[in-house]
Every structure is written in structure tokens, then in C-alpha cells.
Design a binder for these strands. Structure first.
Lengths: 335, 335
DNA sequence: CTGAAAGCGCTAACAG
DNA sequence: CTGTTAGCGCTTTCAG
């Protein structure tokens, strides 16, 4: 593979001049510039960004870590982040932790050793704290996306988890539901805690007693067979919950699958509402009632914050809270 | 940030010894090894893989380029590729071209300049040829995923586009449809050509004349407002197509949206079938009739081929063809 | 078992 | 406008 010296030799100039042509820095006469460009073309020269990175100490590569690459919320976020990065001359590298601290650790180590210029980070949970501290210690700027981590003060783009959950559960109540179950994500994740808080607030406001028995919990990833709801199927309809609030889209899917498999119908037997939407799927077949978040903007705004942070590392951390929109659809039945 | 020399000084050894400890190469006494490890721990040392890559000429990073990060077919593929890469001590970097040759070019240049060890490549179309030639010229191994590129002989993992399309369209015919429209992707993409060929074969086998008028075409990405079907709405039901075969999942969504917006119902007025499925969405609300491909295996097998290719660059190119499964569902009506 | 020297490909800083 | 020198952080090679 051709190096800058091969080009220099061929063009009868020094490596430095070639470097100047590549980077458009310093003065180079039109004539030599043309000559060098021609030689680069002929030899199909591609600058080695590894070598460049070693000397300049910057890679012009940013990284986006998401927790579920099959979740439209995160992939749409990825689009927003990528578009914004491109516009500013940065390249974006995606990583996927699958909600796993182990995979996240692996990925963070890669980031650290690759000397990436900055990270857009959707943490897998509170234990991500350690990983964020590594980034801080190695002086790699980052912005948190979607989730907060207690004990870490930094830029973040978040949704209104508590408000959105409260709004949605209030709607359920308005539709006549009083026996509402919660299917929540891990309490290790800030959004899960906030959404539960919103759920409780809505109940309280309506004078409905909170019942821990109605709370279930599992990971935010879609798990096909995680839930066994046969006990619900056997219950008297009057004692069974009439609605479920799922703390994210994948949980809604999991419980939907579980309900089906024990013969309970949505919304006839049980209503479902959830946080997050389903991206383009919704346009085709709007079924689930959702509190939908502006995913693209999470990525776009997060990228803006990151780029500004890279330029000025001293400014005070900023938190952006993005609103969500509640849509009631077929999956919720009026009682 | 600590370097190998900082560690060496602190541990009273040479940089070379530290290097040996890091890489577990050569003989180092247990005592010095322990000491070095301890110092690395204390100083939170992270090896600089950029420097390492510069000298060893390998990065242990592989790259996966997909054309649509919001399409479950590709994201599921990404999971398969990632899992396989991890198992073999490689890291995987994702890239997304959004079906755009321009973005793809950008991404390939990044790959080339980063000195990635190999690429899993879902090309945006036939014009990707040039990009693949760059890879070849720079001696970067790659495996094609999902799509072929005429004029490029290489390893590839493909689906049975022709057979699957033919199968699905035959089913449509069996359900009584004879006036079947095709919504195809760009003819620049091998799968689009193959799927059209399968569509035509199925018609011919049933003695139905192929009608170019019934063929529509647009990009494989989901475009919300790309199609105006008001002419169909105004037609006499008898002259209108009774079914549509969409060449991928996103096209099915686009046409579904378009039909809805002009007041045509699926499947009452028009049936829809398509290539590819919708991932987890289907479990919840199976609606579309699909020819579903084993996306995870595309990634997994592709990664295996890539790793083998990296080891042995001389072996003959291999093509793996993965079968698809046809599922008829609510979106198709029996006439 | 350990170290010294050289160099991967590039650019910053300076000199001309 | 152009070139020289030095060095980014690491590993390879060879010597001890």
C-alpha cells in the first residue's frame, strides 16, 4: 500500500509537501499541487489515518453506543446522530451493547484504545458508572443519551419518562381502567425508575392504591418466552388487571406475546399501553397505544452537545429534556 | 494518558517487557510480570491500539456495512455478525449507507484509511463495484451480504430472491389473484432484479401475461410519501390490481401507507405480500404476508466466511445461498 | 529472561 | 513556497 513517501518520490517533492496537499494546509504552488494530486490519483493513494491519528492525537471519529440495535428508538436515534456528525466532518462508528454490561465494557475498551474523539453513550444501567469514569479519566468527552447515571455529572439528552408515564397511565384511568399492571425494565436503569414513579403518581392522583403485586419486571430487550401469564388466564376476569402499562416498546411486545400464548386477547381481555413507539411499523399498522419520543432528535441534539463539548471541555454540563407524545390506539379498550 | 514507557519506568523494566506482558508473548518471569501488571492497574493503563496497529498492520477490527439501519433484516444480521466476531476475538464496527452510494463511498474511505482487517459488505447497488475494487486493490478482504455485484467474484452470502419471489407470487395466484402489481426496488440492486425475475416466472407458469404497466419502482428505503396512488382509488375495482408484491419489507410499508392515504383498504380492496419480514414486530401483530429470510444467519455465516478469508486469501470464492420461508397472513385475501 | 535500536506513516515546528 | 528533523506509542529484530 502506497505511503506518503512513495507519492513524494514519484512527484519529486518531499513528504511534507504531499502532506500539505492532502490536508490543504500551508502554501503550495498550483503547479506542484497539481502534480502531487495527479500522482496520488495514479497510485491510488489513501492516507493512513492510523498514522495520522498517532501524531495529531485526534481521529475525527466519534462513537455511538446503543443498547439495542433492533429497537427502532435507538436506530432512529442513530440516524439523527450520524447525519449531524457527517455535517461536521466527523465519522460515526456504531456499537451495540444489547443491554449487557459485559458487552458495554468491551465496547468502551475498544473506544478507549482506538482513541475516538468522543462518545454518544446510551448506558446499559447504573453500573455503567465505572465505564463513564474510565472515559472521564482518559479525557474522552461523552454525552449521555436517553438514560442518566447517578453520580455522573455530564451533558445528557433525556426524555420525560416520568411525565410521559404519568400522562399515559392517567389516560388509561380516564378510559375506565383501575386495575393497571406495570411491566417495568430493570430498576438499574433510570428510565425504568422514572416511569414507575410516573405510574405511581398517576394512580395516586386518581385515588387508586398502588399495589406492588401488580408490578412485574424484566430486561428492556424483547424476550420471546420470558413471561408466563397462565395464572392470569386462570383468574376470574374481575380479579385480573384490565390494562398493562409497559415501560418500553419491547416489553409491550413481550407481554403481548405472553398474553397471546395463554389465550388472552388484546384489547378485548386486557389493554396494553407502553413507552416508546415502533418507528415505521406504526405507520403501517398502528395498534399499540404509545408514549412516543422524538428519537431522531435524541441523536441529533446529542451530537450537537458532543461537538460543542469537544470544543470546550470546561463549560457547565447541559441537560436537554425532550417531550413525548401520547397516542391512544386500538390496544387500549374503553371500559 | 499513560504510555508504555510510563509503565516501564514505574515498574523498573523496559518498554519491551511491558509489551510482552500486555501481549502474553515471550518469556517474562512471574515476578516482573506481576509487578508490571500491578503498575498497569494502578496507572489505569490502556494500550494504544492506534500505535499498535501502525506497527503490526492489523487492527483486529472488522467492519459491517449495511444499507438501512432501521430495517430489522439488517439489524438482525448485525447481531449475527457481531456475535460471531466476538467469539473470535474481533471487534465489529457498524456502518450505515442508507442505500446511498455517496454515503457508502464515505464509509469505504473510512474503512480503508482506518486499516480495518476485513469488511462484511451489503452493497447499495451495482455501482458499489468501484468501492469493492478499492478494497481489492488495497488488499482488504470482504464478503458480500444479501446482494451480488456483477463483475465482482468473491465470497457472498445471499438469499434465494428469485425462488422466494416466485413462490410468493405463485401463492398469490393460488389465492385467486391474477392482476398482481409489482413494487420493486432499484434495478441497480441484484435482489430487485432477481425478485422481479421470480415474479415474472410465477406469472408465466400460471399463464398470466406479464404487464410492464403493473411494475412500479422506487428505493428500498421506507419513504413515507413517495407513492401517489390516487389513480388506483379512482379506477373501477375490476380494472385495479387485486394484489401487490413488494420486493422488500420497507416497500410493503410504503405502499401500505400510500394505499391508506387514498382510502384503499388492505386486504379488503388490495392484498399485499412482500419479501423479508419485520423482525419482532411480526410476533406481536402478524399482518403482512412475507417471504422471510434467516437474517441472523446471514451475519453469522458471512462472518465465518470473512474470518476464513482473512486466514487464507487464496482459496476459491464461496457462495452460500440461504433459503427463505413463505408465510401467508392477513394482508392477503382469498378471492 | 530482558533490553536497545529501528521503524510503522504521518505531521508539527522550524529552517531556508 | 519547500524541505529537514524529530517524534507520536508501539512492536520487531537482534543482542545480551
Amino acid at each position: 500500500m502506497a505511503t506518503i513517501y512513495d507519492i513524494a518520490r514519484q512527484a519529486n517533492v518531499s513528504a511534507m509537501t504531499v502532506s500539505r496537499v492532502i490536508n490543504n494546509t500551508g502554501r503550495v504552488s498550483e503547479k506542484t499541487r497539481a502534480k502531487v494530486k495527479q500522482v496520488m490519483e495514479e497510485m491510488q493513494y489513501i492516507p493512513n489515518s492510523v498514522a495520522r491519528c498517532l501524531v495529531t492525537q485526534e481521529s475525527k471519529i466519534l462513537s455511538l453506543l446503543i443498547t439495542d440495535i433492533t429497537n427502532p428508538f435507538f436506530t432512529t436515534m442513530a440516524r439523527g446522530a450520524e447525519d449531524a456528525a457527517m455535517q461536521h466532518g466527523y465519522r460515526l462508528m456504531f456499537g451495540n451493547s444489547d443491554e449487557s454490561l459485559i458487552k458495554e465494557k468491551d465496547y468502551v475498551q475498544m473506544i478507549l484504545s482506538m482513541r475516538v474523539d468522543g462518545v454518544l453513550f446510551a448506558p446499559s444501567g447504573d453500573q455503567s458508572k465505572e465505564h463513564l469514569e474510565w472515559l472521564t479519566r482518559q479525557n474522552v468527552p461523552f454525552v449521555l443519551l436517553d438514560r442518566e447515571v447517578p453520580g455522573i455529572e455530564c451533558d445528557a439528552v433525556l426524555g420525560d419518562s416520568r411525565g410521559g408515564a404519568k400522562h399515559m397511565v392517567s389516560e388509561l384511568i380516564r378510559y375506565g381502567h383501575r386495575h393497571i399492571a406495570l411491566l417495568n425494565g430493570s430498576e438499574e436503569v433510570s428510565t425504568a425508575r422514572e416511569r414507575k414513579a410516573g405510574y405511581i403518581e398517576a394512580l395516586q392522583e386518581a385515588g387508586i392504591a398502588f399495589d406492588e403485586q401488580l408490578c412485574m419486571q424484566m430486561g428492556y430487550l424483547h424476550e420471546r418466552d420470558a413471561l408466563d401469564l397462565s395464572c392470569w388466564a386462570e383468574m376470574e376476569p374481575q380479579t385480573r388487571p384490565t390494562a398493562i402499562f409497559a415501560a418500553n416498546n419491547m416489553l409491550a411486545l413481550s407481554i403481548y406475546t405472553a398474553l397471546r400464548s395463554v389465550g388472552l386477547r388484546v384489547p378485548d381481555d386486557i389493554s396494553i399501553a407502553c413507552f416508546d413507539d415502533f418507528g415505521w411499523v406504526e405507520e403501517a399498522n398502528p395498534f399499540f397505544s404509545v408514549a412516543s419520543q422524538p428519537a431522531y432528535q435524541f441523536g441529533e441534539i446529542g451530537m450537537q452537545l458532543l461537538l460543542e463539548r469537544i470544543k470546550d471541555r470546561e463549560q457547565a454540563p447541559r441537560r436537554v429534556i425532550l417531550p413525548c407524545q401520547v397516542h391512544l390506539r386500538e390496544s387500549v379498550r374503553q371500559l
